[in-house]
Structure formats: C-alpha cells, structure tokens
Amino acid sequence: MTQVRVSITRKDGLSDPEGVATRRALLDLGYDVGEVHFGRIINLEVDDTDEASVRAAVTAMCERLLANPVIEDYSIEVLS
C-alpha cells in the first residue's frame, strides 16, 4: 500500500469566492495577507508500491475525476 495525498486548488485568475471572503476576514483581523486560495486534500491508499506507477495512476485519477482540469490544478505527494 502506498499513501498518497492529492492537493487540488483553483487555477490562478479564476473566481474563488471562499478565498476572497476569507482574505477579507483576515485583513479585518489585521493580518496583512495577499491572495488566499481554497483547495481540497484527498488522501488515498493505492495498492501498489512502485512510485512511478502509483504517480501515473493517481495522475489519471486526477485528470478524469478528482480534479476538474478546466478550473483546477492538482499536485500529488507520495507519502510512503
């Protein structure tokens, strides 16, 4: 088993209402922050120990289902 973490974020420049609202709240609280972006983290267990093939499989999962390539970017982190 290989533990994999997929992080999905909104593509730069696209509307991110959660991020905008949170940034406004942080500024109100006195924190000097630039852009704030929301995303999702998905933890997966893949039944394979070869890192290259795990990456390939998870990339395919992201392209097909886990992320929407039209509006989202994703990154894959192999944890173990």
Binding site: R10, L14, S15, D16, P17, E18, A21, N68, V70, I71
Partner: peptide, 17 residues
C-alpha cells in the same frame, strides 16, 4: 454538462457564498 465537457467552463460557489 460542463463537467462532462459537453459545454465549456464550470460553475463554482456564488460570490456571496
């Protein structure tokens, strides 16, 4: 239809959440 690629673009959360 957007997710399926039959129409372009996508729909995200309303501006006021």
């Amino acid at each position: 239809l957007c997710e399926a690629g039959l129409l372009p673009g996508a729909l995200v959360a309303n501006r006021d959440l």
